[in-house]
Design a binder for these strands. Sequence first.
DNA 1: ATTTACAATATGA
DNA 2: TCATATTGTAAAT
Length: 158
Amino acid sequence: MLTATIQTDEGDFVAEYSERGLCALHFPGHRLPPPGRLPEPAAHWHYLTTQAVGELLAGMPVSKLPPLDLSDGTPFQQRVWQALCRIPAGQTRSYGQIATALHKPGGARAVGAACGANPIPLLVPCHRVVGSHGQMGGFSGGLRWKEFLLERESARNE
DNA sequence: ATTTACAATATGA
DNA sequence: TCATATTGTAAAT
């Protein structure tokens, strides 16, 4: 498992790579890994990740994503995460809507659980999922990030 | 195999 | 606004 930092105006994120692709992303505040050069192909993935994170923090749609390694998650979680990726930037869905889209009506809570287990926040936009009345649920890196990102994205969508 | 804990939601007071 | 019943998954027993 390889790690690398992403320096942004909001702090230093930490990305983790497996042999298949990006497998985790941590918010600033984490212990920074010892700096070192990434062997290929991780170096290229990291370039894409850095760019994507930069775009997200700027409230822009993401142009390109590195390959995501979601092999940790259960099949259900993987389906949820892929569904999240289909939410357009600047929009939000409710947990219930996601659940229904997955043909699991009533499984809103299960969707929430999957979001919490999401190893790659930001790139897998779990921050675009809110309660059925636009309220906030929770967020892995702290609700502050969720607010920050949603405001940035939706402000651009007026 | 059972029980418990969740980033939910609809309903009724 | 608050309390409660119901729902699907995952992790712990």
